[in-house]
C-alpha cells in the first residue's frame, strides 16, 4: 500500500511538473494544459466511467483481461467509415469471443459533436449495432486527456497486467472511404493477435487519424 501511495505521489508530482511546464511554454493562443500520463510499456492510467446504460466500469476491474479502448464520436465520418463498413463491429465480435474487453469511450463535451445522452444516445448506439462491452461517457474529457486521445477513432490496448501495449490508429489507411477498410493493415487486430498468442507486439505506436476529439 505504501509503495502504491509512493508511486501515486510520484505520478502526481510528475503530472504537476508537466502541467506547469506545458502551460509556461504555450503562447497565449495555443495554451496546452493537457496532462498525458499514458505511455507505451507503462501501467495504463486507471479510470472509472459510467456507461450509456448507467453502469460503472473501471479499468482496474478488468485486470487479468486484455482491454481495448476505442475513442468514439458517432458523428465523425472517420468513425462512421469503420461502423458503416462493419469493420469495427466485426473486430469487437472477433475479440470479445477471445475474452477481450472492448470499451468505446466518448469524450465529446456537452454541446459538442458526438455528445449524446438519454434516449438519443440509446437510439444512436442501437443504430450502429455495436458489439463492444460498453459505451462509456467521458464528458469532462479527463480520461481522454490522460490517454492523450487525439482523434476519433483512436485505439489503445492494455494487456492483462494493466500495461499499455498499443496506442494509435485502427489501421494504415487514413481515409473516410468504406472501401479502404479492405486491404488495410489493421494494427489493433495485429497487436491483439500477437498479444493473445504471447508473442511480441511489433507495432506498438502509430499515428491515429480522424476527427479531433471534441473536448
Amino acid at each position: 500500500m505504501k509503495k502504491l501511495l509512493g508511486i501515486a505521489a510520484l505520478a502526481a508530482m510528475f503530472s504537476l511538473v508537466f502541467a506547469v511546464f506545458a502551460s509556461s511554454q504555450g503562447s497565449e493562443d495555443e495554451k496546452v494544459e493537457v496532462t498525458i500520463t499514458a505511455k507505451i510499456g507503462q501501467p495504463a492510467p486507471n479510470f472509472k466511467l459510467r456507461s450509456a446504460i448507467g453502469k460503472e466500469h473501471s479499468l482496474s476491474g478488468y485486470k487479468g483481461q486484455w482491454v481495448v479502448l476505442e475513442w468514439i464520436n458517432l458523428q465523425c465520418p472517420f468513425v462512421l467509415k469503420h461502423y458503416n463498413s462493419k469493420n469495427m463491429q466485426t473486430l469487437q465480435q472477433t475479440y470479445s469471443k477471445k475474452k477481450v474487453v472492448w470499451l468505446s469511450i466518448c469524450s465529446s463535451a456537452p454541446g459538442k459533436q458526438g455528445n449524446f445522452s438519454g434516449d438519443e444516445l440509446t437510439a444512436k448506439i442501437k443504430e450502429i449495432s455495436t458489439n463492444s462491452t460498453a459505451y462509456l461517457i467521458d464528458g469532462d474529457g479527463k480520461v481522454g486527456h490522460s490517454y492523450g486521445a487525439k482523434t476519433t477513432p483512436h485505439m489503445f490496448i492494455i494487456n492483462p497486467k494493466g500495461v499499455l501495449v498499443y496506442a494509435g490508429a485502427i489501421d494504415d489507411m487514413p481515409s473516410v472511404k468504406l472501401e479502404d477498410v479492405k486491404g488495410a493493415t489493421n494494427f489493433v487486430a495485429a497487436a491483439l493477435d500477437a498479444g493473445l498468442a504471447q508473442k511480441v507486439i511489433k507495432v506498438s505506436s502509430t499515428v491515429s487519424y480522424g476527427c479531433s476529439v471534441k473536448y
Binding site: Q113, V176, K177, C211, S212
Partner: peptide
C-alpha cells in the same frame, strides 16, 4: 478530388 473539410467538425 476527395477531401475532408474541417472546422469545429470534419465533413468529407
Amino acid at each position: 478530388a476527395d477531401w475532408v473539410v474541417c472546422g469545429e467538425v470534419c465533413i468529407p
